[in-house]
Amino acid sequence: MATDTKTALLDVAEHAVRAREFDGFSYADLAEAVGIRKASIHCHFPTKATLSAALMDRYHATFDAECREIETSHDTGADRLKALILLYRNALNEGKTLGLCVTLISSRASLSDQVIEKIKDFRAKMAARIEAIFALGQADKSISGIANPASEARAALALLESAHLSARAEENVQTFDEAVEALNSRC
Rank of each mutant, 00 (worst) to 15 (best):
L10D: 12
E71W: 12
I119C: 05
A139C: 01
L160K: 04
S185N: 11
R154T: 11
A53N: 02
A83H: 07
L81T: 05
D79H: 14
I70P: 06
D57T: 11
A8W: 13
F134D: 00
K48L: 01
D4Y: 09
A19N: 15
R168G: 00
V173R: 03
I143E: 03
A61E: 11
Q114D: 13
A153V: 04
A61F: 03
L84P: 05
I105D: 15
D121M: 05
T50P: 00
S112C: 01
K96C: 03
D64G: 09
F45S: 15
K118C: 01
T50F: 00
A128P: 10
P149D: 02
I133Y: 04
L159Q: 07
A139P: 00
T50E: 12
S106D: 12
A153T: 03
L160Q: 03
E152P: 03
A153D: 03
T175W: 02
R18L: 07
A179Y: 07
E71C: 15
C67E: 09
A61C: 05
L159D: 02
S112A: 11
E178L: 15
F122N: 02
V12N: 13
M126N: 10
N184E: 09
H60Q: 07
A16M: 12
S106R: 15
T175F: 04
K141H: 07
L87Q: 11
S26C: 08
T97G: 03
V173G: 03
I36H: 07
S106W: 09
C187V: 11
I146F: 05
Y88G: 09
G137E: 01
M126Y: 08
V17S: 07
A19T: 15
V173N: 00
D4F: 13
R186M: 13
G35A: 09
D57G: 01
L81V: 05
Y27G: 13
I130H: 06
R129H: 07
I146M: 04
E178K: 05
E14H: 08
A158T: 11
F63I: 02
E181P: 05
A128Y: 02
F134V: 01
T5Q: 13
K38R: 15
K82S: 06
V115P: 02
D23G: 10
D29A: 10
H42Y: 10
R68D: 14
L159N: 06
Q114I: 04
Y27H: 11
A124V: 02
H44N: 08
E117D: 13
V173L: 05
A155W: 04
R80P: 10
L9H: 08
K38G: 04
L86M: 11
S26W: 07
A8N: 13
A167D: 02
D4S: 13
A156C: 14
V102A: 13
R37L: 10
L92I: 05
A150M: 10
K38T: 11
E171F: 09
A139V: 02
A8Y: 12
I116P: 00
K6N: 08
K120N: 09
T47G: 01
P46M: 03
A28Y: 04
N93I: 10
